[in-house]
Simulated scan of single mutants.
Amino acid sequence: MAELNEYGQLVGDPVPNWQGAGLLMRKLLQGRSCRLEPMNTTQHAADLFDAFAQAEDERDWTWLGSVRPISVAATEVWLQGKIDDAGLVPFAVIDVHTGRAVGVVCLMAIDRANGTVEIGHVSWSARMKRSVISTEAVWLLLREAFACGYRRVEWKCDVLNTASRQAAERIGFTFEGRFRQRMVRKGRNRDSDWLSIIDGEWPALDAALQGWLAQSNFDANGQQLRRLESFRQ
């Protein structure tokens, strides 16, 4: 709770012994249905090109800053740009059942001094959208961020990308507000919605996500028995 200082002014809660958050590493994050591997063009470009090529059109790229790569070579260039960016911790999402890369995601906007980080560059192929993999991949990143002492994990999306906002809210992100004319994206205005999960919320959300992700929550055909929302009730 806010408290009064010696001048009678309200000030924020103290954060005892705060020394900043830890370093986020480019390392393997292992889950049950997927794993996140540090991005590597040699290992991941061909798989990712093939996974993204399964889509019939470009609709999945409408609100992204990039466009769908047209070749393995173009995929390599796209991935290398993320690998070379010191401000990103980039991962390829690997389907453990096939061993092939099916998506891309990064930790970004990393502010260790204040303990904030964003999950971004989210590029899911048709092979992982609306699947256990897409939820588990985000859970692995959330788990890593909070384990490293971050106080806040952010999710930002184009206000017109309702699927992205709905996916974040399903996981447990809270909508905080709308930044008007936040950027120009592909020659068009983008207003951005901001959402977050903070450390005090994480234990309950983590328990709900682990409950939903448990093998016992899925039938022999891989269909969920209970919706994620029910684990938070």
Rank of each mutant, 00 (worst) to 15 (best):
M39S: 11
T41W: 00
T42Q: 06
Q43G: 01
H44Q: 04
H44A: 03
A45D: 00
A46W: 03
D47S: 07
D47N: 03
L48M: 12
A51N: 09
A51W: 06
F52K: 13
R59A: 15
R59S: 15
D60G: 05
W61D: 13
T62K: 13
L64I: 02
G65D: 09
V67K: 15
V67I: 15
R68P: 15
P69A: 14
P69F: 09
I70W: 12
I70V: 14
V72Y: 02
T75R: 00
Q80T: 11
Q80H: 08
Q80I: 09
G81R: 07
G81C: 06
G81E: 12
I83W: 11
I83T: 11
I83F: 11
D84T: 07
D84G: 08
L88K: 07
P90S: 12
F91R: 04
A92C: 04
V93F: 10
I94H: 04
I94D: 11
I94F: 07
V102W: 13
V104C: 13
V104I: 13
V104H: 06
M108A: 12
I110Q: 00
I110D: 00
I110G: 00
D111G: 03
R112C: 03
A113F: 08
G115V: 00
V117M: 01
E118H: 03
G120D: 13
H121V: 14
V122Y: 03
S125W: 08
S125K: 10
A126K: 07
K129I: 05
K129T: 15
T135G: 08
E136G: 06
A137Q: 04
V138H: 14
W139C: 08
L140T: 00
L140E: 05
L141Q: 04
L142N: 01
R143T: 12
A145K: 00
C148G: 12
C148M: 13
G149C: 01
G149E: 02
R151M: 04
R152G: 02
V153D: 00
V153C: 07
D158Q: 03
D158K: 01
A163M: 04
S164W: 02
